[in-house]
Amino acid sequence: MLFRPYRALYIGNKRIPFTPGLIPRNQERLAKNISDTIMGSLLTPQELQNLARRLLQTDRVEGAILWLLQSALEQIKFDKDQKSAKILASILRDLLGESLPRLLKTLARREDFLETQINQIFDQVLLEFQLNDEQAKRLADWLLQVVLPPDTIRSAIVDFLTDRTIQTIDESFREKTSGTYWVVANLFGLRNTLTRLRTFCLDEKDATNIRIRELTQDLNVNNRIKRFLLDLSLQNLPIATVRQLRKTTRESVRHYLQTSGGELLQGLSDSMDWDNIAAVLITRLGTSPVVSASLETVSKELALVLERYLERDLEKIVAQVIPILSIDQVIVDRVKSTSPADLEAAIEGIVKNELQAIVSLGGILGFVVGLLQTALLLFSGS
């Protein structure tokens, strides 16, 4: 009668009493009672916290994190769609093209921005820099061939020898010379000579260039410039000049970064193929022994961080997880969805001996009561 019949039996429209059995008839209420009992006595928040602590022990969490990292690394190696590379390319593009320029402009406003680094570069590189013989020779050749070719010198002479300049030179030469030079300056002067020189440079360009080239070779200008470059060193300057030059260099770099550093980085970012760079980086990371060796360390550190977090907030987390999991409703739904036959088999499997004892005890009690009633009937009939 506890379990059977499983369904209600009817005679006409009347349900036969005690059908279905006691448990199938009250299965919904039984499910609610089971849920309340389990959640109230067995799966209490404290028990769930203890369960979470056992499950989330540091060694277990470390192993799980290590497995996840290794799985992610393997997934990256066989990622045919290059999803990870595309994500990394977007991050690098935003970092160098957007975030870093804004940060650079903000930091460049500080007076001490890169002060130590620039001073170190100035002292260790610029201050000790000096050209060797080959470098000085090449630089001198470049200056004479590119920066100061004969045609450029000729044009500079023409631009310099204006009428006002010629007059000033002539008057100054007349006033400030003495002796033989005074006689020459006042009898002949320089005006006519300088005017003829300018006219020659304008009218005879090719000839002037040839004369300038020959004069450069005759005066050995190349070797003079070379010796000057070999002797050129910041260490030969006075200390006060070097300090001022270092300060000026630092301020110039800071000002340039503040005004144009962002545009420089953005232009550099636009010119780079971030997709290809990201793919190369991903491939390198996937095969890097350093990355593989560091996975255990990373997983251990993350497990320790998670442990400290759980020690502080585990109670709050469990309190938030219980409503999300809806364990009580899961128990109710599971019991309600179980067929009466399966429910009978489950209960009998748990308390089979106890139910059999109840049945046996009921039979004995019934037999005793029957004997007593029979004896009473016999005595009362006699």
Rank of each mutant, 00 (worst) to 15 (best):
P149I: 04
Q266F: 05
Q266T: 14
A52S: 05
I11A: 13
R54W: 09
T180F: 11
R109I: 08
L73K: 12
S252N: 10
R211F: 13
V184C: 01
A357V: 10
N192F: 04
N186K: 11
V158P: 00
R250C: 02
K32T: 13
L314A: 09
E115S: 15
R243C: 03
E115L: 08
F129A: 09
A156S: 14
I153Y: 00
Q57K: 14
S90K: 15
T19D: 03
P5I: 02
V146E: 13
S380T: 07
L229I: 07
M272D: 02
W274S: 03
N186F: 03
V351W: 01
S84Y: 14
A357H: 11
Q124Y: 02
R284D: 13
R334I: 01
K336A: 11
T248M: 10
S292C: 07
Q124M: 04
F3Y: 11
A31K: 04
Q329F: 03
E115H: 10
S233F: 04
A345V: 15
I166A: 05
R7I: 11
Q57S: 13
T193C: 04
G363E: 12
L2A: 06
L103N: 09
T374K: 14
E115N: 14
L265I: 06
L114D: 03
D133S: 11
G267C: 02
P5K: 01
D79P: 04
E311T: 06
L131D: 05
E115F: 04
T165N: 14
E263F: 08
G261Y: 00
D231Q: 13
K300T: 09
N236H: 14
N220T: 01
E204Q: 13
Q46W: 02
I87G: 05
G12E: 07
L56P: 01
T44H: 02
F228I: 10
E47C: 05
A375M: 10
F200T: 05
K316L: 04
E74L: 09
Q145G: 04
N119I: 01
L378F: 12
T259M: 09
E128N: 13
T165M: 13
S172Q: 08
L265Y: 02
G63R: 12
Q27M: 03
R29S: 08
I157R: 06
Q167N: 11
F3M: 01
S299A: 15
L371F: 06
N276I: 12
L51F: 15
Q70I: 06
L69C: 05
I225W: 03
L56E: 06
L230M: 06
L365Q: 03
T297V: 12
L310R: 11
Q217Y: 09
Q49S: 06
D203H: 08
E348H: 06
L325E: 02
E115K: 15
L114V: 05
I282G: 02
Q135Y: 10
K176G: 08
L306F: 10
R102E: 13
L143T: 12
I76C: 05
A140I: 10
V330E: 05
K300A: 09
S380H: 07
V335T: 04
T338Y: 00
G262C: 04
S155A: 12
E134S: 13
L265A: 03
A357T: 08
N223D: 10
S172T: 12
I121P: 00
I34H: 01
E214C: 02
D273K: 12
P340S: 01
L285H: 01
T208L: 00
L372G: 11
A207R: 15
L69D: 03
E263G: 11
I317C: 03
L131P: 10
D123E: 10
L230C: 00
